[in-house]
């Protein structure tokens, strides 16, 4: 056997022996993390995922790294809009500044989780370019069942929507608008709903995403903005994750602020921001039709 063949054999032995082990180990970590997230054991999930990150040495590992970042986004989003675990440095009473006040146990910080989620959003976006177009059939060996059918572009769409919700929660309206304007499916209400379901956006994020749609359309297309406002308010009653100021703004706009009033096409009943179907005939509020306020009786 000549030298070149020996080298190929050795390389094959080394590669064939180590690569599957590496990928399998990372796959197991991802599977465990998805289970932890589902159980709301978010701190453990975060530690596991961060610990599993390493510099990838091939395309398969790049795919796993990308999905690790996506799961870290999911973890911090679930914490930000549900069960935070990162401590806040702000004493509940501001005791650091009022030196005589009694120190209390630190609260948990939803803002910290939004920041962390957006940090991993940045990583996922950067790493997406390396995995776009990855052969989906190979995902079965590399990803747990919960992820192997998720195309990288769908995972990226989720990441963008998570970023939208986090920026909304932090009240960076320009960032919300930039994402909304950059995602073409969000422009249409029905397609937006389909996208949120397709990429499994957590319900807790949805009021913020629909509110982003409302803000996007309110200046130019109030009937379209109305649908986003109704859906944001409806989602907020289920999740209790929406901001009080944002809720008040949408409700006030429907009642007084819009240039239109919105009526049930069956029985003319006016839209009520706390009801999501007609109080008379039960027709969904989303089907209410606009009428210029100046013409309204």
């Amino acid at each position: 056997m000549n030298g070149a063949k020996w080298m190929l054999l050795c390389a094959g032995l080394a590669g064939g022996c180590s690569a599957p082990r590496d990928h399998e180990e990372w796959r197991v970590d991802l599977e465990h993390a998805t289970t932890l997230i589902a159980r709301q054991e978010l701190e453990s999930a975060s530690k596991l995922l961060e610990g599993s990150l390493e510099e990838p040495r091939d395309d398969a590992a790049r795919l796993q790294r990308f999905h690790t970042a996506v799961l870290l986004v999911r973890t911090h989003v679930a914490a930000a809009f549900g069960a935070p675990f990162l401590p806040s440095a702000r004493p509940p009473t501001g005791a650091e500044w009022a030196l005589d006040a009694q120190p209390l146990a630190p609260a948990r910080s939803t803002v910290a989780h939004c920041a962390a989620a957006l940090h991993w959003v940045g990583r996922a976006r950067a790493w997406y370019v390396e995995v776009d177009g990855f052969d989906a059939a190979r995902g079965k060996e590399l990803l747990p069942p919960a992820l192997d059918g998720v195309a990288p572009r769908d995972a990226l769409a989720y990441v963008q929507l998570a970023a939208l919700a986090c920026y909304g929660r932090l009240r960076f309206g320009d960032r919300v608008e930039a994402i909304f304007a950059g995602m073409e499916p969000l422009a249409d209400f029905e397609r937006c709903e389909t996208l949120l379901a397709a990429v499994r956006v957590e319900e807790a994020l949805q009021p913020w995403i629909y509110a982003g749609g409302f803000e996007h359309w309110v200046a130019n297309d109030e009937p379209r903005a109305f649908k986003f406002a109704v859906r944001a308010l409806e989602a907020s009653t289920r999740t209790r994750t929406f901001g009080a100021r944002e809720h008040a703004r949408l409700a006030e706009w429907i009642t007084h602020g819009s240039e239109f009033v919105f009526r049930c096409p069956s029985c003319d009943t006016l839209a009520d921001p706390v009801l999501f179907s007609c109080s008379v005939c039960r027709r969904p509020t989303l089907e209410f039709e606009p009428e210029p306020r100046t013409l309204a009786k």
């Binding site: 501001g94 650091e96 920041a115």
Partner: peptide, 25 residues
């Protein structure tokens, strides 16, 4: 800016938070 409620903090990109200390401290 109510000194008893102001309570500024710095949130690092990974979610670590740092409290602000009063200038006199």
């Amino acid at each position: 800016l109510n000194p008893e409620r102001f309570a500024p903090e710095l949130v690092l990109a990974d979610g670590t938070t740092l409290a602000a200390l009063p200038p006199r401290v």
